[in-house]
């Protein structure tokens, strides 16, 4: 455990330590079967394997858009938490998903979310879903998240704009 309260990477480090818990504590996340694979400050990666029960078009075996929405929403929210220096959870205000092309049958989907701005009460995110590399984009998203107030104290969840 990192005890330096001023370390900007502190929350991301806590999340890395508890990645197994994050992967198992969300029932709907378990149902669709995605996993968080990597956490850095303000940046989270995940893996969504193809599965029969997620198919939206039985003729082509393409995964339903709702699976991608779940995936990118979840990763974006985690990227917000990973961007802050104090432990804060967030709630999605809104999320826009653009579907670039259908996901291919049988292939894993990689997700990547970035929280690029934290204000006193709102986080701004963008995220990508793709096969293997970002030039094989399946979907992109832009989101805003409200920072939930802590139960005790009222310190600002100060974060800085990421490069």
């Amino acid at each position: 455990m990192n005890d330096d309260k001023n370390d900007p990477d502190r929350i991301a480090a806590v999340m890395r330590e508890h990645v197994d818990l994050m992967n198992s504590a969300v029932p709907w996340g378990n149902e669709v079967g995605f996993q968080v694979t990597k956490v850095e400050r303000g940046h989270v990666w995940g893996l969504q394997p193809w599965a029969e029960n997620l198919v939206g078009d039985p003729e082509t075996g393409v995964i339903h858009g709702g699976v991608i929405t779940t995936f990118l929403d979840n990763l974006s929210g985690m990227a917000c938490t990973a961007a802050m220096t104090k432990l804060r959870f967030v709630a999605t205000i809104d999320l826009r998903i653009d579907y670039m092309r259908p996901a291919e049958k049988g292939l894993d989907i990689i997700g990547e979310a970035e929280c690029y701005r934290v204000t006193k009460s709102v986080c701004f995110t963008r995220a990508w879903a793709y096969h293997e590399t970002r030039d094989r984009l399946i979907a992109t998203s832009a989101g805003t998240f409200a920072i939930n107030k802590p139960r005790f104290g009222s310190q600002s969840p100060q974060g800085k704009t990421l490069p």
């Binding site: 969300v26 929405t69 779940t70």
Partner: peptide, 24 residues
């Protein structure tokens, strides 16, 4: 259904499940 839960502490539906339902 239990599997639609996103936050077990406050027992809230997962936003992704709601969005999937609305998209369909």
């Amino acid at each position: 259904q239990e599997k639609l839960i996103g936050n077990v502490t406050i027992r809230a539906l997962h936003g992704g499940a709601i969005a999937s339902f609305l998209e369909l």
